[in-house]
Design a protein around this nucleic acid. Structure first.
Lengths: 227, 227
DNA sequence: GTTAATCGGTTGTTTTTACAACGGAAGGGA
DNA sequence: TCCCTTCCGTTGTAAAAACAACCGATTAAC
């Protein structure tokens, strides 16, 4: 599929909000965009890489992960179609990645030379202002998202972390039932807890009638806002 | 002191990078800037407030804090002179603050109607492009900072969290000796651990010869990168 | 100078986690 | 079909944190 067809209105990336279809092709070219596909588990960027290009997920999902010297993996964020990664490092002038970007499943990524658009006001001036305004919103919301994740992992117990996360997911999905984009190990890595402890806690919560689940499909049975 | 005098070259805020002195006064006026002073512990913004103005610390330090229903306080970030707060919510179009902003000590804050500059391209067009580019950098770096903080609090033990944080501080100060901007309770809140457990761990680390400290002055005695 | 409040360190108890090891179920490939 | 791998739940143990309570030192208030 041609690149520009990924950005039709119904699935347009926040990055291209306000860009008309006719402009899109030119903009994509201006960004020096290229695409590449990856298989599950493949490394898209590795920690330590020097990055000049932002990544935009066209298909599939990717995980931002941070592995420490003791072998603990932390999933910082989960990025889906239309969302970007590495943009903070490109825009912040810190090219050296402290995180890795791993394909959570088969996926297709668009890379773009964003530095060029951010920094210099060249021929494509029409787009610059709009694109930069878009990226301000994206960075700001990612900021908020990171603070939201912190809300979960600053909780003291596995139980609280899990319930805090599930409550947010429920709110985001606007429903008491929802699917999570993680397997158990992934969820544990995202919440920074032990997989086995997480499993055990989930079993307990299910036994207590607080939640129900099968595989990655979850259901909140009581209002978790009460203690 | 007049507002513009806070932004002389040697202490110019990242927000005003590239703005000449002569333009500064006009820009400050354009931003609708006003200033206000607060005493230690006073609330500058409260969680739940609807904010339209970003805050810029002129003097003193403020803490971004998040209190949960169980009375646990988490200090999300510590903001010093020249740095901003609430900009992510203003720029992200999410005016409802999930955090409070508390004066860590006596401080002076400048408020500015940033929405106006971000959103519309009015008379002050000369500044807009520059200002927006600055805010992109600020948001991006704050993003990276948040990820860095996550690096600490995702560690499993109090000891690891503390050493991770101290290593970073040492690196930031470019020295094995440095002062922290927190008291014990503040440090515990920042790292999401118990104050008493933190104290105990610190004592142990001192006894082992790993660190040394008196009050908030710390010293790293061995290379913490080795296990 | 006396009093009160805050801050920081210590200790003991209870709760929770991390860790390791195991086993069953599900799924994929040959 | 069989084998192998991956995923997930369970259990027991050891380590660590949370919590509460206390006490001394320093600081601030009167």
């Amino acid at each position: 599929m041609k690149l520009k067809n990924y950005f039709q209105p119904e699935q347009k990336s926040p990055l291209f909000q306000g860009v008309s279809d006719s402009e899109l092709a030119a903009l994509i070219k201006c960004l020096g965009a290229r695409e590449k596909t990856y298989g599950k588990g493949q490394s898209i960027y590795a920690a330590g890489d020097f990055v000049r290009e932002i990544g935009l997920v066209l298909e599939g999902r990717v995980h931002l992960v941070r592995d420490d010297a003791w072998g603990n993996r932390n999933i910082i964020a989960e990025i889906g179609p239309g969302e970007m990664f590495a943009e903070a490092f490109v825009c912040g002038g810190v090219g050296l990645l402290p995180v890795s970007v791993i394909a959570a499943g088969d996926c297709k990524i668009m890379f773009a030379d964003f530095q060029r658009v951010i920094m210099q006001c060249g021929s494509a001036c029409l787009f610059h202002s709009l694109l930069i305004r878009n990226i301000v919103g994206i960075l700001a919301r990612k900021n908020i998202m990171l603070q939201g994740k912190m809300e979960h992992i600053t909780k003291r117990t596995t139980r609280e972390k899990l319930l805090s996360y599930l409550s947010e997911q429920s709110r985001l999905h606007g429903s008491g039932e929802f699917a999570l984009p993680f397997d158990r190990q992934g969820l544990a890595d995202y919440l920074s807890v032990e997989r086995s402890a997480l499993s055990a806690e989930m079993s307990r919560l299910k036994a207590e009638g607080v939640i129900n689940y099968r595989k990655s499909h979850f259901e909140l049975l009581i209002d978790t806002r009460e203690k």
